[in-house]
């Protein structure tokens, strides 16, 4: 067994174990750090596979992403500091069953599938070839991903800020009528007059 194999099996075990611990730990902050450990172990496996750029990019990206995630976990934490047991699950048996079936099916593909054995040729520089691909033939794909990320940033700001420069987002706006030219389908409550029966069912 070579050193590469030993490193691979250790990191594979760490990745799977940490991925499982994400959903059984009591603290949601600890859950996000377990997910970080799982990603880092996968990053090491990518380095073993000579995908240098991707492995290192995964390190940096996940380190930052999981710090942000830990902050959100504190905001939405179910129990203080994870000191109480937490098990917030629904349909758990179904979920376990589907997870096992998916694992078995994908593993069957891995074991019984016939894939060509064509390893990375000697002398291939993975980073150089990735750079030529990103800024050459596949530039459109790469740039589309970039523009999609920009659109995501704009959408995220729009979703999370409930006020614009001139007040609330829905201030003064009226929904269209159910038939052309008819009453608005749902008037704001303060402009509603008595005797005019609308179907309002507000559940709080």
């Amino acid at each position: 067994m070579s050193a590469v194999d030993i490193t691979f099996f250790i990191n594979a075990a760490v990745a799977i174990f940490a991925g499982w611990r994400v959903f059984v730990t009591d603290s949601m902050v600890r859950a996000s750090f377990f997910l970080l450990i799982s990603f880092l172990a996968v990053g090491v496996i990518m380095l073993l596979l000579a995908a240098v750029y991707l492995g290192v990019a995964l390190f940096f990206m996940m380190a930052v992403e999981m710090m942000v995630m830990a902050l959100f976990m504190v905001m939405f934490m179910m129990n203080p500091a994870g000191l109480n047991p937490m098990k917030m699950v629904h349909q758990e048996k179904v979920a376990i069953g589907v997870g096992v079936v998916v694992f078995a099916a994908l593993s069957a593909v891995a074991v019984f599938g016939e894939f060509p054995s064509r390893p990375v040729p000697e002398g291939l520089q993975p980073v150089v070839s990735l750079g030529h691909e990103l800024l050459g033939k596949s530039m459109l794909v790469f740039e589309s991903a970039g523009v999609t990320l920009l659109a995501t940033m704009i959408a995220v700001v729009m979703l999370t800020s409930h006020r614009g420069r001139y007040g609330d987002a829905n201030h003064g706006s009226q929904p269209p009528g159910l038939e052309p030219g008819g009453d608005p389908a749902d008037k704001p409550e303060e402009t509603e007059e008595g005797g005019h029966h609308h179907h309002h069912h507000h559940h709080h």
């Binding site: 691979f8 594979a12 990745a15 799977i16 991925g19 499982w20 994400v22 959903f23 949601m28 859950a31 799982s38 996968v42 496996i45 596979l49 995630m69 959100f72 976990m73 939405f76 179910m78 917030m88 699950v89 629904h90 349909q91 758990e92 179904v94 979920a95 376990i96 589907v98 997870g99 096992v100 998916v102 694992f103 994908l106 593993s107 593909v109 891995a110 074991v111």
Partner: peptide
């Protein structure tokens, strides 16, 4: 084969978590 089995395990655990967790962030 071993690499794909590891990937399959991660995907299976992820599907379990996605289907079973009640909290949005989890």
């Amino acid at each position: 084969t071993t690499l794909l089995i590891v990937a399959a395990a991660l995907i299976g655990i992820g599907i379990y978590g996605t289907l079973s967790q009640q909290s949005f962030v989890m």
